[in-house]
Write a protein that binds this DNA or RNA. Structure first.
Lengths: 338, 338
DNA sequence: CCTGTGGATGCATACGTATGCACAGGCGCT
DNA sequence: AGCGCCTGTGCATACGTATGCATCCACAGG
């Protein structure tokens, strides 16, 4: 009783293997009584179709590869959850890979390709041109999520980071902040680069410049430590822009509990992502919400878009972020007129 | 240039397909010069072995199924991360499924079995006896993580919940708490049942009984709302035991921000899991830490244990939890003597 | 020179399923 | 009655890889 195959069902039902296959596929040509008989015998002897064999023959694995980086940043579980749910709804299976800190996407991609995945979604970081080519050669579409790439010809979906960051900064300047500091994530990520760029552009427009620039590694502890470094200045910043919410929460706690500062009276702290805990009363974090669901939808649309197979254009979609005003920063809520 | 197979490599290198297969497998019998030639041609024409075909033939898919429930409870991303990392290290691939709220594990298991997974890890909930039998028939080992089952013959790994909850309660009683309430998760989960049981046993031992019993659905919002219901009593509880940390954090914020109570002076709040945010200064949650890494290690050991294939015993392993004392509850730190 | 030996490679087949084609039987039409 | 057609089923093959067995060649020993 090792493996029960369609041949076993065929033997038990007194038909051929091909008839079993057709009956299970709902082929019209099989008479309904035969179909019934086959289905019930399949049920009774506990037959489970071998999807691997099916995939081998049809050349369609129904599997999508998902490469995640840091699952400990609360933004990504939400993303992961969304992707898995959306893919399951579309009848796709998810092969999940994790890139450990310090690891490279390139290390896991070969494994994905071996499983004949129909597409790959990468949320961890960009990928090398070598691997981009390997995917191209296999005709395996790739979509970068929350990451942009400038060199490689790969599709990506992200938030309009520069714009969102620019607008956020404008609002902070409007509210009379004039000493800005940034707590960055990792220097090699597009989110970091773009959000910093928007911030600096807005500052420059008003003749301002950053008074502090620290890295927080996209962790709570990193944000906490970075904030301590920033706030020990004699003339400390009065606005800290954090490239992600986890770091902003660390910074907030460092300011309040370690240095006894009041937020937002003594300084404003803002983040990006709008993770669930940003709305908790302990934090009330002003932040830029990423439109996760829409981004996921667009990612899958790009991934499965049939016309991408012909014109292999590297499309980058940028969805607008939404400023969520809470009480961690001195920003007036937008007038309804605007 | 659709699919590059080992035959293409064979043709390009002027050998047979079987020689290619053997060369790539590192077969000793292939002369090293032939091997070199094959490897380099494979490289140059961009050959990727088809793992599906390989799996079909060897009857070993190298895939492990992972069924997750609520990824929005921060405990589970940590678990997921740990499992994926551990499995990748063992050379296994992870096929991830999600059970949407209100869904059943039974709905996704058939898909897993179709992909010939070598084992299934379930963190969402127990599974029906029908599905347990189906897995047994397929000789597919199953391990429940953080869930126990009493009826079915399935292995499981959890924390020693009753014991941990009992000890925690004893410590709270020692510290003169006498009006206990519980905020539960979902009534049908073993974690809820067992933690409540330990709590009630300890209370009974001191002639006490619960003064409040609410459900919080293992969400922050649920914990928040449940705490409001509990704390509007005239004689409100002075200790709230929450079955998971997320709910405890909700309860804490409800007490502080909504009702103006002081924690732990006015009441103690404790949780379970020790999620990362439990240690943040805003919360400082006293909680029972689950030994996640050890639990994962034991789960995989059970899953791949060769002798389980002969004696099909349903082993339930219970690892001790560790009480982490912080400032959300009035508990003296254990004397070093003890 | 013939045979035996061993090393290197090719041939054929199997894994479990889907599908084009052939085939059998029944029925209606001329 | 004979012909064609339709319906329902079986036969054979293909997917890409791994592997038992046969084969071939070279070389050594008799």
């Amino acid at each position: 009783m090792s493996k029960i195959t369609s041949r076993d069902v065929a033997r038990a039902a007194g038909v051929s293997q091909s008839t079993v296959s057709r009956a299970l596929a709902g082929d019209e040509r099989i008479s309904s009584e035969t179909r019934e008989r086959i289905l019930s015998t399949a049920q009774s002897i506990g037959y489970t179709p071998n999807e691997l064999a099916r995939s081998l023959l049809s050349n369609k694995s129904n599997i999508v590869g998902l490469v995640m980086g840091d699952l400990l940043n609360p933004f990504y579980p939400t993303v992961l959850n969304g992707f898995v749910a959306a893919l399951q709804k579309r009848g796709k299976r998810v092969l999940l890979f994790t890139v450990p800190p310090g690891g490279e996407v390139d290390d896991v991609l070969p494994f994905l390709l071996q499983y004949q995945v129909e597409g790959v979604i990468i949320t961890s970081s960009a990928l090398s041109s070598k691997m981009a080519n390997a995917c191209e050669r296999n005709k395996t579409p790739v979509v970068l999520f929350n990451r942009a790439t400038y060199k490689e010809a790969v599709c990506s979906v992200c938030c309009a980071n520069v714009q969102a960051s620019f607008d956020l900064t404008e609002r902070l300047i409007e509210a009379e902040h004039d000493r800005f500091a940034i707590i960055g994530g990792r220097a090699d990520t597009s989110t970091h680069i773009e959000r910093k760029q928007g911030l600096e552009e807005a500052l420059a427009r008003h003749g301002l410049a950053l008074v502090g620039d620290e890295m927080g590694d996209n962790t709570y502890e990193g944000g906490f430590a970075a904030a301590l470094r920033l706030l020990r200045f004699r003339r400390r910043p009065n606005a800290i822009v954090c490239v992600s919410d986890v770091m902003a929460m660390g910074a907030l706690d460092a300011a309040r509990f370690e240095l006894g500062l009041r937020v937002p009276q003594d300084l404003s702290i803002v983040g990006f992502d709008d993770i669930p805990s940003a709305s908790w009363p302990s934090y009330q974090l002003t932040t830029v919400r990423q439109p996760i669901d829409a981004m996921i939808e667009r990612s899958l649309a790009l991934l499965f878009d049939p016309e991408r197979k012909t014109k292999r254009k590297a499309i980058t979609e940028r969805l607008p972020g939404e400023l969520i005003v809470r009480s961690s920063a001195l920003i007036a809520a937008k007038h309804p007129a605007e």
